[in-house]
Computed example of a mutant assay.
Amino acid sequence: MQLNGVHLNHCGVNTMIKECIILLFFLSMSIHLWADEPRSSNMNIWTENDDVYVLHTHSVTAWTIRKSELKVIDKKNGSEIFRAETTPFTKLVPVDGGKYFAGFSDLQAGSLPHGYNFALFTPDGEFISRVYVSKKTGHCDKVSQSVSQYLRWFSKSPNIKLAKDENGSIKSIIVSPLYYESSPCKLPIGDQLVKLEK
């Protein structure tokens, strides 16, 4: 066989084809691995009720959390009621008319060191629930999850209902799901954490 004036024997062509296939395989693997690197996020979000502002800021690069902080500020005098390091939330919403607040995160890598991607807390900073939601935990019917980048489980405008007993104590938290046709996510009270092992 001749290619551009160069004589190639049958064995040489087969070897070149095999080497090209191997090279393409490794290139595709490296592109795939690069594509699933944990995503970075820099965010400042807030919500409020009649009395307080709830502020959250985070800076996350892949698995490294540079900063992730939650603050509650009194509207009347501007004083800080509460401050804590938290998982990097990507959404904050008032719950039950502002009696509570909920923080949600779809950052899988950023949430795992803290062990939760949902929190329900009071305006004075008491955590009622901190839960890690994923395909494996069984809190939601359907979860869209990559290997390390994202974990989508709540709707863009999550609706939250609190299931209470006859004494008014919260028994569980019902969250509207990511997919319209799915059953609502049912989250427990207390800590249900899934942390990375060091």
Rank of each mutant, 00 (worst) to 15 (best):
Y132H: 13
L196H: 14
P94W: 00
E19Q: 15
I128S: 02
Q145P: 03
G12L: 13
P184F: 01
K99H: 12
C185I: 10
R83L: 12
F127R: 13
L120Q: 05
W34Q: 09
C140P: 05
I170W: 03
F154C: 03
T15S: 12
T90S: 13
D165L: 01
S40R: 11
P184M: 01
K76A: 14
K135W: 02
I81P: 09
R152T: 05
S129A: 15
L151A: 03
M1S: 14
S111G: 06
S59D: 15
E19D: 13
F101N: 02
E181T: 12
Y100E: 05
T15L: 15
N117Y: 04
Q108M: 13
V13A: 12
P88E: 04
D74K: 13
W46P: 00
S155A: 14
T47N: 04
Q108K: 15
L193P: 09
L3H: 09
V93Y: 00
R152K: 13
K71Q: 14
I160M: 01
E126Y: 10
T122K: 02
S41C: 13
K18S: 12
S134K: 11
V6K: 14
L162D: 07
L107I: 09
E48Q: 14
E126I: 11
T15G: 06
V133N: 06
V54S: 12
T47Q: 04
E181I: 10
G78S: 09
E80T: 15
K186G: 00
D96V: 06
A62E: 11
K76C: 07
N167C: 00
D96T: 00
S79C: 08
K195I: 01
K142E: 08
L3R: 11
D141S: 15
P113M: 07
V143L: 07
G103A: 08
S129Y: 04
P88L: 07
D124K: 14
G125N: 09
G110Q: 08
Y116M: 00
T90E: 09
F121Y: 12
L8R: 04
F121V: 07
G168K: 03
F104W: 05
P88I: 08
N49Y: 01
L27H: 09
E80W: 01
L162K: 01
M29D: 06
N49S: 08
W46M: 13
D96L: 06
V147T: 13
W153H: 03
L178V: 07
I65L: 09
Q2N: 14
T61P: 04
C185T: 02
I189R: 07
K136I: 02
I174Q: 09
S30H: 05
L112W: 02
V13S: 02
C185G: 12
Q192R: 14
E69M: 12
C140R: 08
F121Q: 06
G98N: 01
C140D: 07
V93E: 07
N159V: 15
Y100R: 08
A102Q: 04
S134Q: 11
L107D: 00
I22S: 09
M43K: 15
S59C: 07
T86A: 06
C11W: 14
